[in-house]
Design a protein around this nucleic acid. Structure first.
Length: 508
RNA sequence: GCCGCGUUGGUCAAGGGGUUAAGACGCUUCCCUUUCACGGAAGAGUCACGGGUUCGAUUCCCGUACGUGGUACCA
């Protein structure tokens, strides 16, 4: 059996959408499991939609995800170039061959003429408004024109496209690895443009030619391609033979959480969650769309979450590392129906991953997020200790600022309302005495502090519980965080005393 | 409109002719903790509808409804 080769074929038209990343993931998992190759081919055949920087951005996203292409624009490879615009000249010969074999034809119709044809079709009450086996007999193409007429138009340089000739009354059948057999009546498929007037191929021609040339064995793409699959099957049949055709799998869509339809960038803006893998700034408008990365997601969690949207191992395991995914993944366990995106569940995956990863693994990432809030970390060992103490309280990486910030600088404000109403001179005296005792103490570990605290409380005849909350507010500023004595020992004796003194002034 | 694909709790989903129809997220309650989390326990909530086939259908078949995708010289 030949080596498995799969490809992800993005168009550089904007941010990398959730669904796109999942398509990458499934391709990648499948390839790695079979010890195959994962190829990234840039499909930039539509010059009008080309967006500056989008290609680099896509590769940045893949890098963040930890997914490396075996062959690509960047990595190179035996089938270069991997950018379709650079392969432009290749496609024409295949289109011409199709014309010669009678499987395609030249069409000289202007957009206006096609529009007129559709308007006419509407008046006839015909169900189909397509340029197809039926309507083409009325149009300006080499099928209807005399050979001399066609030649004359060609010679005079009249703009034209090449369209596939789909025969009437046939059926096209193919097997989808996820959906099983799909059969389509050719009467419903139109004569799609293969080669545009500018000489660029359309997606339909380009995928088939490149998948053949690049020896792709399995072609995975979104479900939105199912309706045009028959065109591709026909092209394979005409050009390279069905026996060389890759196996197909059409992945289910990721849908909006609320209403209906495919998840889009707009839904993220509207509902307040990211849709792109990383921040994307539109070069034309300058608008930035938030990405999962910048929001504080770990790539491990992002990918894990995506894998579970549309695929399920059939066991109760939900948390998977990339290696585990590669081991467990199989295309036949991918679902047929679309799944609504749930941001809450996405956050849950991130939380699980933050808990799962060690503090030292997390530390560099936390350093970065804190730096973005102008909190510079100089002591990594100290950071690791802090991360270990607070990580189970953080859902997103960005939560570390709030959850760990007070370990690095004293709180700016204290939650006075939580203390003042029940504040007494006895309590004030307790803390003044407490400072004296910890100054004198040899040990400043968590247990020692707790012992001193509780003994003094007993002496003063105050319940320790009534003193712990004020102490927390003194050290943290608010009602959250790990055990107070753990905080005290971590920030150290000096800081602890300083913060208590400051707070005592405020509580007075 | 036409064509394709789909339909298990609010969401992700396991299962698949006979089950008390898993599990997770979210939600509620309780325990732990005089903080917030974590952890633990419990709870509410489901097989779209109508016909078949069958001793028996959530599971198979056919319709309907609904959803979704396509219907571009976009991918």
């Amino acid at each position: 059996m030949s080596k498995v080769r799969v490809r992800f074929a993005p168009s550089p038209t904007g941010g990398l959408h959730l669904g796109g990343v999942r398509t990458v993931l499934f391709n990648y998992l499948f390839a790695k499991k079979q010890d195959g190759s994962f190829i990234v081919r840039v499909e930039d055949t539509d010059q009008s939609r080309y967006v500056e920087g989008a290609e680099k951005y896509i590769f940045d996203c893949l890098a963040w995800c930890g997914i490396a292409a075996d062959e690509s624009v960047i990595a190179g490879g035996p089938y270069a170039p991997y950018r379709q615009s650079e392969r432009k000249d290749l496609y024409r010969q295949y289109a011409e061959k199709l014309v010669q074999d009678g499987n395609a034809y030249y069409a000289f119709d202007t957009p206006e003429e096609i529009e007129t044809m559709r308007e006419f079709l509407k008046t006839t009450g015909s169900g189909s408004l397509q340029y197809d086996h039926n309507s083409r007999s009325r149009m300006n193409n080499s099928l209807r024109l005399l050979p001399e007429e066609t030649q004359a138009l060609l010679n005079s340089g009249t703009p034209h496209v090449i369209r596939i000739k789909v025969n009437a009354n046939e059926t096209v059948q193919f097997t989808d690895m996820i959906r099983g057999d799909i059969t389509v009546d050719t009467n419903n498929v139109d004569d799609k443009v293969l080669l545009k007037a500018d000489g660029m191929p359309t997606y339909h021609l380009a995928v088939v030619v490149d998948d053949y040339l690049m020896k792709i064995t399995h072609a995975f793409r979104g479900e939105e391609w199912v309706p045009s699959a028959p065109i591709h099957i026909l092209l394979w049949k005409y050009l390279f033979g069905l026996h060389n055709m890759p196996h197909w799998a059409h992945l289910p869509l990721i849908l909006k959480p609320d209403g209906n339809g495919k998840l889009s960038k707009r839904d993220g803006d509207r509902l307040g969650f990211p849709v792109y893998a990383m921040d994307w700034t539109d070069p034309k408008t300058g608008d930035t769309t938030k990405g999962f990365k910048e929001l504080g997601f770990l790539p491990e969690a992002f990918l894990n979450m995506l894998a579970m949207l549309g695929w399920n191992p059939g066991t109760e395991q939900e948390i998977f590392s990339m290696d585990e995914l590669i081991q467990s993944f199989s295309m036949d366990r991918v679902h047929t129906s679309g799944a609504k995106f749930d941001f809450e569940k996405a956050k849950w995956f991130n939380h699980e991953w933050i808990k799962k990863l060690s503090a030292s693994t997390l530390a560099p990432l936390v350093t970065n997020t804190l730096a973005q809030k102008n909190l510079q970390i100089t002591d990594n060992d100290y950071l690791v200790k802090v991360v270990d103490l607070v990580k189970e309280r953080c859902t997103l990486l960005t939560d570390f600022y709030e959850q760990a910030g007070y370990f690095f600088k004293a709180p700016l404000t204290l939650d006075e309302a939580a203390v003042k109403p029940k504040w007494t001179t006895e309590k004030n005296n307790f803390f003044e005495e407490f400072i004296i005792r910890i100054v004198a103490a040899e040990n400043f570990d968590s247990a020692a502090i707790e012992t001193i605290f509780k003994e003094l409380a007993t002496e003063k005849n105050i319940k320790p519980g009534e003193l712990q909350l004020p102490m927390r507010i003194m050290l943290v500023g608010a009602k959250f965080g790990p055990g107070v004595f753990d905080i005290a020992t971590t920030i150290g004796k000096e800081q602890t005393i300083a913060r208590i003194k400051t707070a005592l002034e405020i509580f007075k």
